[in-house]
Amino acid sequence: MDRRAVTPRRVALSLALLVSSVGSVAATELSGSATLTSDYVWRGTSQSDEGPAVQAGIKFAGMHGFYAQAWGSDVRFAPQTAASHELDLVAGWAGPLSDAFALDAALTHYRYPGAAVDLDWTEFGATLTWRTRAWLQLAHASDALASGAPGTYAQVGMRIPVDDRLWFEIAVGRYWLHAASGANDYTHVQAGVV
């Protein structure tokens, strides 16, 4: 796809139209979050130079599974980028496919307001979940990480219940980045307790 065809203005307009159409269907839920984290890790790499980050988000969920959200975080990239904030604008649909399976599909536009270079990019992704215990996530961008080259990400994970309130979670992810992007493909593993 021609990189010039997906402009921030077009993405913002698309998100605004989706929010408008979802809002006209009748709001069912508005929620928000705020977090102070010791490190902002995304797909296995630190986005805050292994330092703390303040994060906040707001989500509007309409009827029939459609939703829109905005989420932001502090970031610390290479000094020449002058990037200090990330703003993710998301429009998507989430809902059950059957008693066992659920799907969440979304278009995400990553913005870095005030950056000295153009770091903005857009990605389509979907996560298929089985009984909230296992998931498969796939995402693709024609301009991955604002590199001008495509990239595809996949993750498979599972949650293992320890008791009614405690779960062990493990996931393996792989990011395939086109050689023209200047970045190497990589694999990461994450584990935690929820």
Rank of each mutant, 00 (worst) to 15 (best):
R3E: 03
R3L: 14
R4K: 14
R4Q: 11
T7M: 04
R10I: 03
R10H: 11
A12Q: 11
S14I: 08
A16V: 11
V19L: 15
V22P: 00
V25H: 00
A26Q: 06
T28V: 14
E29C: 10
L30P: 05
L30H: 08
L30A: 11
S33P: 04
S33Q: 15
S33D: 15
A34Q: 12
T35L: 15
T35M: 12
T37D: 07
T37M: 10
D39K: 12
Y40I: 11
Y40N: 13
W42T: 15
W42F: 15
W42L: 13
G44S: 08
G44Q: 09
T45Q: 13
S48L: 08
D49F: 07
G57S: 10
I58A: 14
H64R: 11
G65A: 06
F66N: 02
F66P: 02
Y67S: 08
Y67N: 06
A68M: 09
Q69S: 15
W71D: 12
G72A: 14
V75F: 03
V75C: 03
R76H: 09
F77W: 06
A78E: 09
P79N: 10
P79H: 06
A83F: 07
L87G: 03
D88A: 07
V90C: 00
V90H: 00
G95H: 01
P96V: 07
L97W: 00
L97G: 03
S98D: 02
L103K: 02
D104V: 11
D104Q: 05
D104C: 06
A106T: 08
L107V: 12
T108H: 00
H109W: 03
Y110N: 03
G114Q: 06
A115S: 14
L119Y: 04
D120A: 13
D120N: 14
W121Q: 08
E123C: 05
G125L: 08
A126W: 01
A126L: 06
L128D: 04
T129V: 12
T129E: 00
R131T: 08
T132V: 07
Q137I: 10
Q137P: 00
Q137K: 14
H140R: 11
D143W: 07
S147M: 05
G148S: 04
T152E: 06
Y153I: 12
M158A: 14
M158T: 15
D163W: 05
D164M: 08
R165C: 09
L166P: 00
F168S: 12
E169F: 02
I170E: 07
V172A: 12
W176I: 03
W176Y: 09
L177W: 05
L177C: 04
H178W: 01
A179L: 05
A179F: 04
S181L: 04
G182K: 02
Y186L: 06
G192S: 09
